[in-house]
């Protein structure tokens, strides 16, 4: 009986604590590390991909890049590939598109995953925001 009384008294306090925690989490989220997904479907935006990736990294965020379609051509561009050496950058590509375009597998750096649309699905699931180039 006395235990029930304690819970009754503690419940409003616990509720308040929950609200404060929620507010704290919401405010902290704005400054949390963002994972930006970049879906590369063409080879037209090379400089924009490099510029944006560098700017996003400078702000302390992470970048996930997935190349598909004509975008696979950029997976052998030395300046794009060099981004992979930066902390916080991961890259994968659609191997089906790579083959169709005629890029040899041995021309792809070994730490770039020659995968499938599963890797795109994974990027979209993991990234906080995704932009298409």
């Amino acid at each position: 009986m006395s235990g029930y009384g304690l819970w009754e008294r503690a419940a409003p306090l616990l509720l308040q604590l929950l609200c404060v925690t929620k507010i704290l989490i919401k405010n902290t989220d704005k400054h949390a590390i963002m994972k930006l997904g970049i879906l590369v479907t063409t080879d037209k935006y090379r400089d924009d991909i490099i510029g944006l990736t560098e700017a996003v990294l400078k702000r302390g965020h992470a970048v996930i890049i997935f190349f598909m379609d004509e975008g696979c051509r950029l997976a052998i561009d030395k300046d794009i590939v060099a981004l992979k050496d930066r902390t916080g950058v991961s890259m994968s590509l659609c191997d089906l598109n790579r083959g169709k375009i005629g890029i040899a597998k041995q021309d792809i750096r070994e730490d770039i995953i020659c995968g499938s649309q599963y890797d795109n699905a994974l990027m979209n699931r993991e990234a906080d925001k995704v932009i298409v180039f």
Partner: peptide, 25 residues
């Protein structure tokens, strides 16, 4: 995640991608 794929000028590839995205989204 909830994703909208907007088909434009490369519809076949866009659809193939949309289908693939459903694996996890």
């Amino acid at each position: 995640k909830k994703i909208a794929v907007m088909l434009r000028d490369r519809q076949s590839e866009a659809l193939r991608m949309a289908i693939g995205l459903t694996i996890l989204n």
